[in-house]
């Protein structure tokens, strides 16, 4: 710009200014939980409507690709499905007989699906996180629809994650498979507590998440046991299904166990989720608790707030 006689700002100063501004933002965000402020307005009125549209187009293309199969393929599939229906019908009759028995046992076991009574709101996933390192996504409901930070998100039968940021018409959800996610959980059959933490490495290797710090003195926990969110969790409502334990091993040094869990939710093809419009601890209660809380396992848990 010097040729034109305008004031010239050296690039180095620009870099320095921007970096200082970034550092200030970091501190400010760490201290106050700032997460965009006025920029969120831009997100609400510019990005989210367009993303919604784009997500629609993307879904349509995806659907079109799936529909573009040949008739022959469909005929073959139809044939095999018909066979499957016959097979399943046979099984159904025998299962119906067992159902009565199961209901009885269920009553004894108190296994009824707790979350059928929670008030939920459905939302569409409108965009994924912009990086390969994290597993967050944006949904198309925000504070206008009653969404708040720390609300739990489920899909189908299992826990998906937690709301970490809310705009007027959008909310960001961090899924439980994210590397920074930690959930206080318990084994449904033995009521033993543990911590379920996402792990990028485990996830990309075997589509599983890790659990650790499991106290299982009586060696009862085994493969296939159900893991649900625990009653001592700060942020997660009790009894949401996380997944099934697929292996257990001793933790080095401590008398605790670790292993991995296969989540029940298919995180790769998530397009609709349910947000539970109920917080585990209302805000005031939470603050009080944080004041005098002893350090327990659950203090490791990461909720929706900043870390």
């Amino acid at each position: 710009m010097d040729r034109r006689g305008g004031p010239k700002v050296p690039s180095r100063f620009v870099l320095l200014l921007l970096l200082i501004f970034c550092v200030m933002l970091l501190f400010f965000s760490y201290a106050t939980g700032f997460s965009g402020g006025p920029l969120k307005l831009a997100a609400d009125y510019v990005f989210v409507p367009m993303q919604r549209g784009m997500a629609g187009v993307g879904n349509r293309i995806y659907e079109a690709m799936r529909e573009g199969r040949t008739k022959r393929e469909l005929a073959i599939e139809n044939e095999s499905l018909k066979r499957r229906v016959d097979e399943l019908e046979k099984r159904l009759t025998s299962i119906e007989l067992q159902e009565g028995e199961l209901n009885e046992l269920r009553k004894l076991y108190k296994l009824d699906q707790r979350y059928s009574k929670y008030k939920t709101v459905g939302a569409y996933v409108i965009s994924r996180s912009a990086s390969n390192w994290f597993n967050t996504f944006t949904i198309d409901k925000g504070s206008v629809d009653g969404i708040q930070v720390d609300m739990n998100v489920i899909a189908g039968s299992g826990l998906v994650g937690i709301v970490t940021e809310v705009g007027r018409h959008y909310a960001v959800v961090r899924s439980i498979i994210d590397d920074t996610s930690n959930v206080s959980a318990m084994v449904l059959s033995t009521k033993d507590y543990c911590i379920v933490g996402g792990n990028l490495k485990r996830m990309s290797e075997s589509s599983m998440i890790d659990f650790s710090s499991l106290e299982d003195a009586s060696d009862k926990v085994e493969e296939g046991d159900r893991l649900v969110t625990s009653n001592i969790s700060d942020k997660y409502l009790q009894g949401l299904l996380i997944g099934y334990i697929s292996n257990v091993s001793e933790e080095k040094g401590a008398k605790k166990k670790k292993g991995s869990v296969t989540p029940v939710v298919d995180f790769k093809h998530l397009s609709e989720v349910l947000v539970i419009k109920e917080l585990k601890n209302p805000a005031e209660l939470q603050k009080k608790q944080q004041g005098g809380k002893a350090k327990t396992d659950k203090s490791k848990e990461t909720g929706g707030g900043k870390q």
Binding site: C22, S29, K40, S127, V172
Partner: peptide
């Protein structure tokens, strides 16, 4: 800033 807005982590990391 855009990435920060939709990431839910400390605001400013991606900007930097």
């Amino acid at each position: 800033l855009l990435c920060d807005l939709f990431s839910g982590d400390l605001f400013g990391t991606y900007a930097m």
